[in-house]
Nucleic acid binder design. Structure first.
Length: 820
RNA sequence: GCGAGAGUGGCGGAAUUGGUAGACGCGCUGGUCUUAGGAACCAGUAUCCUAUGAUGUGGGGGUUCGAGUCCCCCCUCUCGCACCA
């Protein structure tokens, strides 16, 4: 009689069913509001890990919930398929990156399908598909036309042994990760995207992205790093040239007693005098070494060297020495700073070390700074002193006044400086999108004509890991005639940074099959922006900033009409697990530990709590095994129940069992009551204990709806359903009012559908419904059912609980007072 | 240093607006049923106390009839940026 719950059978059945009915296929529609839900697409590494399960389970709850609420939900999936791991695998295993990548995609797709995620699989694509990257090449050409893509010299990490460029992540302690030789800096011509043109817009919009976590916005603001200040020109003694500095403190200009330049500053050569030549080159070499090793170790002693030259402080007319200093960065501002030791801590330390003059030009109120007694720079507010006609002015107004004064004499001007720099997109790598440019001796860098796209990445290459990118040696690929003059020319052999692909994939999902351009504008405008984006916090800056930038570029290219790609963002936490380590035998698998001791040597194992799952720590749970043992529904339920989505989730075997038990309990609550409720009608009212159950049912609908919608409190939503299930178990008057039981059970099944869709569908069918539970829609709560006849009032005297009284809900105040 | 966030039972975590702190789950304790169960079901489980009761949300102040929640100061932890001129 009783049907046991066998997750595997149930899950296979419904996954098959969804596939056949194309349940999650969507098209543009006007009779339903659209909702675009997206999780960050995965890199096809070969296997799904628990982080993916969590990410996609979270997304699937929202997708299914919104669908049940009547939204036209776009929920696509694809693959961020270009990148280095494929090349490395090719080198190690003698396979081809394409083969490796597509095989990984095939097996990961099957894994994802076993989780029961509601994707419109017809929209799936991989960024290494020619039909995707060809449109990326077109976007590049349009950007090139507009001056948004340009080429300039830039230094890169170069391994002289492997003859290849290394990404920053491939440099470990200044050495090549593969051959462990010291990495050099090499000057190369690279392609850049002019993200700095959008710095202001990217920054301004951070205030309008109210659906984003504050910390992500803070990181982006920090990264963009806008600061208001002044550009000031310092003439060089005995030269017509001037040194430009950027400062946020023009008010302290009278206190600038020397100047510091970055060791890499282009004017260093002309500034160094013959006598200082040797000292300077020694210093530059020293900083180059220090940059990598000492800087990383937190060493920050201020070091410098005198160039032998002097510049002139434009306000005091004084000659001030020009130094090189290790703390001045070429990449920020102009690479030159006016040093005001009295009011800047770094300049202060530098001046003390090299015995340079310190002059106080800002006096704080109610205090008298004396240079000899200063232990550190004074960086606060105050009134100007030793500043000529500006004496007595408060320093905030002095910023304006001095900037205006300099502007009038054409010696400086107010300016804005950004930390953000243009995005270098060239990679000397094989497995990426070829940059569609042809170099001609006569015509220079010529864009590949649109009709010649795509520039197909050739497949016939062999990867050895040495000698640089195989594209740079692939004659058939390289040799091409100049599209402008027809003379023999050479193709660009660099490929794009893979962040380029992930900067617009979300838009392509709107029209993955479109052959008329990157985007079908109508489809893109219908679906975009993404209403809810979900992914890891590790992408807080790079990916999310680049995607925002690209969206604005696509808008300005006329390809779509939105300003921002992602209306709401949810950054989910990591999946962690306890790890165990033996002093002698290193990290231990859980089965290598018995009673807290290492099973190899018997010594106590050290327990590390909350460590991110990683193979090296042997604390990884394989989703396949988990699903095999408990089923996809349990895996989903636990990853949603154990922690709120934005927090780290600590994996716990017993917690998983708890979720599995709960599903069994739900299952039995339905199967045990099937006979009872077989002919029962849904109630519109109830009496006594049945009214309490009915109230609980409708309270639960309300709670779960509000918890999911916008708040993403899945853990408390699930807890609420558990309470309802407990109430059904506790309810003993089923014989009298079976309809109330049916209502409660159907509610449980419907509310659980976004979390455990397979079990939910199966139970819904058992309850006698021919149509999918998703078609049945999201339940509505009945406000009348929420009303109680009596409520418990807590009587507090001086804030202490002194008693409880039961009163009618509509009792008058004096009745309540009397009762109390 | 700057920026963001967090400190609540043995554990994961609840507590939309200030109103019975500890929902729900794990673990633990006891029970029922069973040949047996790590199955299922029922009950209990913040701390102290025999109990009335008292104490409890990192610490210290404050506002309030009433504070986990609001204000001030301090401590600790996590994450991000970090010589940013």
């Amino acid at each position: 009689m009783e049907t046991p719950y066998v997750p595997k059978t149930v899950e296979q059945k419904w996954q098959q069913q969804w596939l056949q009915s194309q349940a999650f296929k969507v098209a543009e529609s006007t009779d339903k509001p659209k909702y675009y839900l997206l999780e960050m697409f995965p890199y096809p590494s070969g296997r799904i890990h628990m982080g993916h399960v969590r990410n996609y389970a979270i997304g699937d709850v929202v997708a299914r919930f919104k669908r049940m609420q009547g939204f036209n939900v776009l929920h696509p999936m694809g693959w961020d398929a270009f990148g280095m791991p494929a090349e490395n695998a090719a080198i190690e295993h003698g396979t081809h990156p394409a083969k490796w990548t597509y095989e990984n995609i095939a097996s990961m797709r099957e894994q994802l399908k076993r989780i029961g995620l509601s994707y419109d699989w017809e929209r799936e694509f991989a960024t290494c598909d020619e039909s995707y990257y060809r449109w990326e090449q077109l976007i590049f050409l349009k950007m090139f036309e507009r001056g948004l893509a340009y080429k300039k010299g830039s230094s890169v990490n170069w391994c002289p042994d492997c003859q290849t460029v290394l990404a920053n992540e491939q440099v470990e302690d200044s050495c090549c990760w593969r051959c462990h030789n010291v990495v050099e800096q090499k000057e190369l011509e690279q392609w850049f995207f002019k993200i700095t043109d959008y710095a202001d817009e990217l920054l301004d919009w951070t205030d309008k992205l109210t659906g984003w976590p504050e910390r992500v916005l803070a990181m982006q603001r920090n990264w963009i790093g806008k600061s208001y200040g002044c550009e000031i020109e310092f003439p060089i003694v005995g030269s017509a040239e001037k040194i430009k500095v950027f400062t946020t403190r023009p008010d302290t200009l009278f206190g600038a007693t020397f100047m510091s330049l970055a060791p890499e500053h282009p004017m260093v050569k002309t500034l160094v005098t013959a006598e200082q030549q040797k000292a300077v080159s020694q210093f530059v070499a020293q900083v180059e070494r220090q940059d990598k090793i000492e800087r990383a170790s937190g060493e920050n002693e201020k070091l410098g060297v005198f160039t032998g030259s002097y510049s002139i402080n434009p306000l005091t007319g004084e000659q001030i020495p020009v130094f090189l200093a290790n703390f001045v960065l070429m990449g920020y501002g102009t690479g030159a700073v006016m040093a005001v030791p009295a009011h800047d801590q770094r300049d202060f330390e530098f001046a003390r070390k090299y015995e340079l003059p310190i002059r106080v030009v800002i006096q704080p109120e109610g205090e008298m700074l004396v240079v000899e007694q200063m232990a550190e720079a004074y960086v606060g507010a105050g009134q100007l002193v030793n500043s000529g006609q500006f004496d007595g002015v408060d320093n905030e107004s002095a910023k304006e006044q001095i900037a205006a004064y300099l502007d009038g004499r054409n010696e400086g001007r107010k300016t804005v400086n950004f930390r953000l720099r243009d995005w270098g997109v060239s990679r000397q790598r094989y497995w990426g999108t070829p940059i569609p440019i042809i170099y001609c001796d006569s015509c220079g860098a010529v864009p590949v004509p649109e009709q010649d796209l795509p520039v197909v990445l050739p497949k016939d290459v062999e990867l050895t890991g040495e000698g640089g990118s195989p594209l740079a040696r692939h004659q058939a690929f390289l040799k091409v005639d100049c599209p402008a003059c027809g003379k023999p020319a050479r193709r660009e052999s660099d490929t794009f940074d893979t962040f380029v692909e992930s900067s617009w994939y979300f838009a392509r999902y709107a029209c993955p099959e479109f052959t008329g351009g990157p985007l079908d504008k109508a489809a893109a405008n219908y679906w975009l922006p993404v209403d809810q984006y979900i992914g890891g916090i590790e992408h807080a800056v790079m990916h999310l900033l680049y995607a925002r930038f690209f969206t604005k570029v696509l808008r300005d290219l006329g390809m779509l009409d939105v300003d921002e790609p992602f209306t709401k963002l949810l950054t989910q936490g990591m999946v962690c697990m306890e790890s165990q380590r033996c002093a002698e035998h290193g990290w231990l698998y859980p089965e290598q530990v018995a009673d807290g001791n290492c099973t190899i040597c018997g010594k106590p194992a050290e327990v590390g709590r909350n460590e991110k799952m990683s193979k090296s720590k042997k604390n990884v749970i394989d989703p396949n095994q988990l699903i095999e043992q408990f089923g996809a529904d349990t895996a989903r339920l636990f990853s949603l129940f154990a922690a709120p989505p934005e927090k780290d989730l600590e994996w716990n075997e017993q917690g998983v069992e708890g979720c599995s038990r709960f599903l069994g309990r739900v299952w039995r609550s339905v199967t045990d009551n099937l006979e009872l409720i077989a002919t029962a009608e849904l109630p519109t009212a109830a009496e006594g204990a049945a009214a309490d159950l009915r109230r609980k049912t409708h309270q639960t609908i309300k709670k779960v709806t509000e918890d999911i919608d916008g708040r993403f409190h899945f853990n408390t939503a699930i807890a609420a359903v558990m309470e309802l299930v407990n109430a059904i178990y506790a309810f003993k008057d089923g014989q009298q009012q079976p309809g109330v039981v049916r209502e409660a059970l159907e509610t449980v099944v419907r509310l659980l559908n976004p979390f455990v869709p397979h079990a939910s569908e199966e139970l819904w069918e058992m309850l006698g419904h021919a149509e999918s539970v998703e078609t049945a829609g999201w339940p509505q709560w009945d406000a009348d059912a929420l009303i109680t006849a009596e409520i418990t009032l807590v009587v507090q005297v001086n804030g202490k609980v002194r008693g409880k009284v039961e009163v009618a809900v509509d009792a008058a105040e004096d009745v309540i007072k009397a009762a109390a």
